[in-house]
Amino acid sequence: MKLGFIYENQYKVFQNINIDVPERKFVSITGPSGVGKSTLLRNLGGFITPSEGEVLLLGKKVVKPTPKISLIHQSIVTFPWMTALENVALSVKSVKKVSQAEAEKVARKMLELVGLRGFEDFYPKEMSGGMRQRVAIARALAVDPIVLLMDEPFSHLDELTAEGLRNEVYNILFNEENSLSSVVMVSHNLKEIVELSDIVYVMNGRPAEIVGEIYIDIPRPRKMDDPKFEEYMDKLFSMLTPIPVKGERK
């Protein structure tokens, strides 16, 4: 893959990025602020074109957005004038030529999968932040993606809500009821990274490169009081000290 990206002002944000996303794995990308994590995620989804290298999905080059790759944004995006059911059904109809009844059938199934059965007719203003994020997950899964990209998906939630959703999200995503094969999440929260991830890629430097690839070997469900949990957090933290530009004074 060897991805690189250069902004219009000729600033090279990252280079030589090579990431493998195996089937049925939860992959996370972390690094200090400004290393291009979210930009990389959009490269992976075909939303912006890398300046160097290419992205492959099932052996085919990704050159534009595709329903096979869904993205959950950092901010919780739902249409406020639509119910939860209508929000998810709209996502289905945007990529599939199906009737409204069929779209709503899929939407109900996805809302039940994310734990929102009985809330189909609620509007976003009537739901908590955690519930709205569940709607966003249901929308993303409703189009039958192979890969789900998540950009800081819990950052706008209070810690208690985020913790509750993290406890469930792995089982929601890798459920036999959906088509999902793999997940790639960008996050700066080391606790949620260790809790959810199978593989973690650490970006650092300017231009940023991959400076670490860590495989999290802790049985699920994972407990924060497990000594290995703390060991992985310490290992990740040690890689996150910003690396100065070559030749720059420390």
Rank of each mutant, 00 (worst) to 15 (best):
V200E: 05
L116M: 13
I69V: 14
I210M: 10
Q10R: 09
P22M: 11
V135Q: 02
L157G: 01
K68D: 15
V92S: 08
I216M: 05
Y201H: 09
R24L: 12
N167D: 15
V13E: 01
L196E: 05
M224K: 08
V147C: 01
V143S: 10
Y11W: 09
Q10V: 11
V21H: 05
P80T: 01
M239F: 01
L85A: 03
Y201K: 02
N178D: 09
L160H: 05
A136N: 06
S181C: 05
F5E: 00
R117G: 15
D198G: 12
H156D: 11
G130D: 04
P221L: 03
V194Y: 06
P65R: 03
R42G: 00
E230R: 13
I214S: 08
S38W: 14
Q133V: 15
F237A: 12
I76Y: 02
S28M: 14
P242M: 05
R24W: 08
V106D: 08
K61D: 04
T241D: 11
A101L: 13
S238E: 13
M185C: 04
V62R: 01
M150R: 02
K64T: 15
R42S: 00
A140V: 09
V184I: 11
V194W: 07
P80V: 06
E192N: 08
A142E: 11
